[in-house]
Amino acid sequence: MTAVAIGRAADGVRRRNAVLLVVLLAALLAAPWLVNDYLLTVMIVILYSAFTGQAWNIMMGFAGQLSLGHALYAGLGAYVSAVLFTKFGIDPWLGFLVSVPVAALSGAIIGFLAFRFGVSGVYFAILTIAFAEFARIGFDHLSLVNAAAGLFLPVAQYGHNDLLRLRGDPTMFYYVILAATVVAFALCRFLIGSRIGYYWLAIREDEQAARSAGIDTFRCKMYAVTISAAITSFAGVFYAFFYNNLFPEQVFGIGRSIEMILGPVIGGVGTLFGPILGSFLLTGLAETLDSALAAAGLDVPGAKEVFYGVCLLIVIVALPDGVWPPLARRLGLDKDKR
């Protein structure tokens, strides 16, 4: 293949990617007019999962660092913004500006401890779980946040949507999380095409070889965990103002961390579309199952978890790279950046 041919093929892929993005975005923008309130809530849950999956993917998919404690960063974002709002009357967007450094700092502390002392692989994953558990138990006894009794945000009936205070109807929340997901996607796309993105991939592939190519791997991994934690904290802010109640058990529980990684794992770790596709597949199908069971008058506790397990099994056995990479090949999109 000549350089021109390679360039032309890449252009075609780029065009197809752009078309896919525009169609997807248009459909998502139009969704509130097309679906009912229940489905809109499902869409919110899907986009929430896509957003957190995108953030987690920076650490695992790009830099190759397995975090199983991302609930920590979302939880900190949720509690910081909720406490500032309920106790001090500070608007959530300002609260978000506080929760970003809090989450980023906690990510940096975990990263520093792990990367400085050579904790890697599954041991790093265990460390991230441990910190999320510390937070869960700590917040369970922290009276500032009403401990285990839970923190509640005042739910008032608003005649209009107040975007500044994040009080309003599901449509407003839908657009907020959609915007956040678009921003996260664009940010990831930018990062992976930049110098730090190349360095992350090199570290993921072979850390020793990366160091020999002159890469300061410690610093790059610190960037990954800090950026990922900072982005994830926004999910927490959203969570707090969407659900209006926070319990340490729920917010910091390991189940939350696992839910965050399911989307990208099903969709394709390390890809840009994987977290989005995986969230749609998983949450979409799980909600369908839920409502089908409800319609049939069956009450099956834990059905969703069993369903997640089955999905994971199928993907691990049949599509170990996730659903997106083979689908992208089929659509002629695979020659784009990874």
């Binding site: 110098r195 190349y198 360095y199 991939l201 090199a202 592939e205 072979d206 070889a209 990366a210 190519a213 002159g214 890469i215 990874r338």
Partner: peptide
Amino acid sequence: FPALSVEDNVIVGALL
């Protein structure tokens, strides 16, 4: 770097 393209392998070095 096994999963990276030949081009990207060299770009990583050149970025130094």
